[in-house]
Amino acid sequence: MNGDVDRFRRLLFSLGRLHSLRDPLASSCERTPLTAPQIHALLWLGQDEALTMGELARRLGITEKTVTGVVDRLEREGHVQRERDPEDRRVVRCRLTAAGTRVYRKLDRTVLQGMGRMLERLDANDRRALFRILEKLIASASPEGRPPSLPGAGSR
Score class of each variant (00 low, 15 high):
residue 113 Q to S: 06
residue 68 T to N: 12
residue 70 V to R: 08
residue 131 F to R: 06
residue 106 K to A: 14
residue 79 H to F: 15
residue 118 M to C: 08
residue 62 I to W: 03
residue 101 T to V: 07
residue 94 C to A: 15
residue 150 L to S: 08
residue 92 V to F: 00
residue 40 H to L: 13
residue 136 K to Y: 08
residue 114 G to Y: 00
residue 136 K to E: 11
residue 10 R to M: 05
residue 89 R to D: 05
residue 83 E to P: 00
residue 74 L to Q: 14
residue 17 R to S: 11
residue 119 L to W: 03
residue 15 L to Y: 12
residue 20 S to E: 14
residue 119 L to H: 02
residue 75 E to N: 15
residue 118 M to V: 10
residue 45 L to A: 07
residue 119 L to Y: 03
residue 139 A to E: 08
residue 102 R to L: 14
residue 94 C to L: 13
residue 20 S to V: 07
residue 38 Q to W: 06
residue 75 E to I: 11
residue 29 C to M: 12
residue 51 L to N: 01
residue 108 D to W: 14
residue 150 L to R: 13
residue 101 T to D: 15
residue 74 L to D: 12
residue 127 R to F: 02
residue 136 K to V: 06
residue 151 P to E: 09
residue 152 G to N: 12
residue 129 A to V: 02
residue 106 K to M: 12
residue 128 R to E: 11
residue 143 P to T: 07
residue 39 I to W: 01
residue 129 A to D: 01
residue 16 G to K: 09
residue 45 L to V: 00
residue 62 I to S: 06
residue 128 R to T: 06
residue 1 M to P: 04
residue 102 R to N: 14
residue 118 M to D: 03
residue 56 L to P: 08
residue 19 H to T: 10
residue 88 D to M: 07
residue 86 P to M: 05
residue 84 R to Q: 10
residue 27 S to L: 13
residue 126 D to T: 09
residue 101 T to W: 13
residue 55 E to W: 04
residue 135 E to H: 03
residue 124 A to Y: 00
residue 96 L to S: 11
residue 57 A to Q: 10
residue 129 A to R: 09
residue 12 L to D: 02
residue 43 L to Y: 08
residue 134 L to T: 10
residue 122 L to Y: 06
residue 82 R to S: 11
residue 68 T to Y: 14
residue 150 L to Q: 10
residue 57 A to K: 09
residue 45 L to Y: 06
residue 105 R to M: 12
residue 90 R to S: 00
residue 22 R to H: 06
residue 61 G to W: 11
residue 143 P to K: 10
residue 97 T to R: 04
residue 54 G to P: 06
residue 18 L to P: 00
residue 103 V to L: 13
residue 127 R to E: 05
residue 19 H to P: 00
residue 118 M to F: 05
residue 127 R to P: 00
residue 37 P to S: 10
residue 29 C to S: 14
residue 137 L to C: 07
residue 52 T to L: 02
